[in-house]
């Protein structure tokens, strides 16, 4: 689908949507949002870009295969689950910094867990869609 309007639009939409997806991820603990929805929104951003510019070009922007996001995401989640073990606490215990960080807000192990989910979701969705799209 070659459309100058869509191509121009996605140039601006991609970063905005990605920023929005990250915003959803960060606010998830207090307001509607979270890693899962955030990941889906980010995936949609890339899918939109691939519609306008072709999947090959989107893959170029991504640099790495979306598949590689899956182990990274799972790893981050797993670490955040097992991290409390180092302090002699049972796994999945929520650990939080005392003071909020500017812009981001409260940072705790749950946020990293959500970040892992976010990355896994992007990895999974893009892997499935792009593999099918590129299969001829």
């Amino acid at each position: 689908m070659k459309s100058a309007i869509l191509q121009t639009a996605t140039r601006y939409l991609l970063p905005i949507l990605l920023l929005f997806s990250f915003f959803l991820l960060l606010r998830g603990h207090y307001y509607p949002g979270g890693g899962f929805v955030g990941g889906l929104v980010a995936s949609i951003a890339f899918v939109l870009h691939s519609f306008a510019n072709g999947t090959e070009n989107t893959m170029k922007i991504l640099r790495y295969k979306p598949l590689s996001l899956i182990p990274i995401g799972l790893g981050i989640s797993a670490v955040s689950v097992t991290f409390p073990l180092l302090f002699g606490l049972p796994p999945m215990t929520g650990l939080w910094f005392e003071e909020p960080i500017p812009v981001i807000g409260m940072i705790g192990s749950a946020l990293f867990f959500d970040l892992g989910v976010y990355l896994v979701v992007i990895g999974v969705v893009l892997t499935i869609l792009f593999t099918i799209a590129l299969n001829d």
């Binding site: 603990h29 999945m92 867990f113």
Partner: peptide
């Protein structure tokens, strides 16, 4: 769990193990 969004807190904390395995 220090979260105000109950749905999300359930997903990432109370039932986090489920979410982990779902991913």
């Amino acid at each position: 769990a220090k979260g105000k969004n109950v749905v999300n807190v359930i997903l990432v904390d109370f039932r986090g193990m489920d979410t982990m395995f779902e991913t």
